[in-house]
Design a protein around this nucleic acid. Sequence first.
DNA 1: CACGAAGCATGCAACGTTGCAATAGGCGCG
DNA 2: CGCGCCTATTGCAACGTTGCATGCTTCGTG
Lengths: 342, 342
Amino acid sequence: MGRGGGVAARLKDVAERAGVSVRTVSNVVSNAPAVAPDTRARVRRAIDELGYRPNLAARNLRQGRTGLIGLAIPEIHSPYFGELAGLLVEAARERGWTLLIEQTAGSAERELEFLSGRASNTLDGMAISPWAIGTEQLRRHTGGTPLVVLGESDPQGAADHVVIDNVAAAREMTSHLLESGRTRVAAVGSQPHLGNGTAALRLRGMHEALAAAGRTIDPALEVPVASLHREEGRRAMGRLLDHGSPPDAVFCFSDELALGAVYEAKRRGLDVPGDVAVAGFDDIEDGRYATPGLTTISPRKDQIAASTLQCLADRVYGRLDHLPARRITVPHRLVVRESTGR
Amino acid sequence: MGRGGGVAARLKDVAERAGVSVRTVSNVVSNAPAVAPDTRARVRRAIDELGYRPNLAARNLRQGRTGLIGLAIPEIHSPYFGELAGLLVEAARERGWTLLIEQTAGSAERELEFLSGRASNTLDGMAISPWAIGTEQLRRHTGGTPLVVLGESDPQGAADHVVIDNVAAAREMTSHLLESGRTRVAAVGSQPHLGNGTAALRLRGMHEALAAAGRTIDPALEVPVASLHREEGRRAMGRLLDHGSPPDAVFCFSDELALGAVYEAKRRGLDVPGDVAVAGFDDIEDGRYATPGLTTISPRKDQIAASTLQCLADRVYGRLDHLPARRITVPHRLVVRESTGR
DNA sequence: CACGAAGCATGCAACGTTGCAATAGGCGCG
DNA sequence: CGCGCCTATTGCAACGTTGCATGCTTCGTG
């Protein structure tokens, strides 16, 4: 029986056509060594003629692997997460994996659903950039599926962890602003209610730099936000400018916040950087083409992606299965553009 | 045997614990009607106690479905495709599907690889936003897996097709520019070498509007681009401004091109919209927060996503299996902001 | 010439699930 | 009281693949 029409060919069909056993075809497909050259050629031809493609469901069932890696991020269309997701898709592809993206919309419920949901047997590995949940909830991850945590929210040994040095980065940015002559540096982006501790670290780095320069810390210049979107940055800048003695520099904890802040400053007729310097964080593409070009912290996103997949590969294929969780710090650099110039 | 430790529970384990057959557990899991209420309750309890989750690989193998939909777009991190991908992920999720995103980087090779690659048996359905390939290559799609084509490149019956009326949209935008007093309208974004015919349609719409207003068409004001990115928009604007008699309005075929164009105009000390009006296409978030706010064409992206999944659902589950391919036109609207104001 | 090794090919079983057909028990009706 | 029908439950087989063990050659060596 040749299984006519559009029905997908199976190993059995190829075997019949090539006049060998199913097992031999399987050996050819999986590049097993013990196959005679002419047999291999004959099988290859049959495969081409029938357009055979392995049935992944069957392979997965047999091997207990799916070839799928899950990624949970707050939203795909945000510039930062979009760029990161794109890099992760490529990195996964290079390793023969397929990346599957889940959006959590920054909701704790959906983040937890991702961690406990399909994980158990649909995915070979998972990566999450947590937003609402923190260390406590990540620690509950019981290891069934390898997990990599991106960004803050230290899983404390419950999973591998890829980060940048947020404290140092914020320190560098703050120092840059102070060294270029700014005296009242505001911070936009603290998020006191979130599990994700990123903002707290950046605030700490900023405080360290202020202290090192002998400046006092003015709590009125630290504006919390509900999200890292442009609209929040715009609102925050508005509040700062309405303040009795407004800042001459604003350090936003994301480029999007910074773009919103710049928008509001310009809307009010202020010059950036003349009247107020604005700096961001993430180095998204928009920042490069904004006027003025946005000064920012640029994390090596490509290395974040590479490290994430390396961690997963080590746990899925390697013998690092029961080694203690790793913590990988990816480098970053300060990119100075016009928005903080003189 | 209870399969201790972290090993995933199977139907068999649940069955033993609940004192029923494997088949009955399966019936409970799939909400089959013929199960006595107390049996159902007992099985449910066992499921919870063991933390049972169905093994999708096995289910897929048995049913011939995977629950996966593939999406191929040029790049995730572009604002337009990022927003679209996010909406599609949500729409798929609502229908119990998982969307898997493939990046083609606008390469014909990778687009074709997507169409013929894993499709045959890993995906329940596919959607592609073609860039380099055109009608000819799409027509070769032989229907194994349901396919939806997004944007131009009419598959001519080989697949369902979701579009906006690019000709009408470009006509509306051009008329808007002419009506607000502009006389020399340039077009940035034609892509003569591409299979994807979107740019050609927008150019046609523009010509129609020019003709309707009794204007002549100046080929020197039509600038081709290699991509739809900001950098290309910037370059194109540079070329137009170096031209002997520069335009007083520039219609860019994407918002990103427009943002690049605005950047270059401002860099040269020109006022937008005072000296030159700039309009885009796509209505990406950046355009809303740019200064000046970007006039654009806003396609109903949510409807594109919804229609795409509706088409796929009809073919995968429904009885529309062998109905002729559909073509769905999604509405759009002209959004006037400051970049074309007076 | 016999024997082991090496190279190649094969058959069987199992992964966890669900479609199909069949069974056991309960009930109403003739 | 017995027949048939309906409900609840069950067993068997199969989806397409690969791990394991084994069989069949052929060749080299003592």
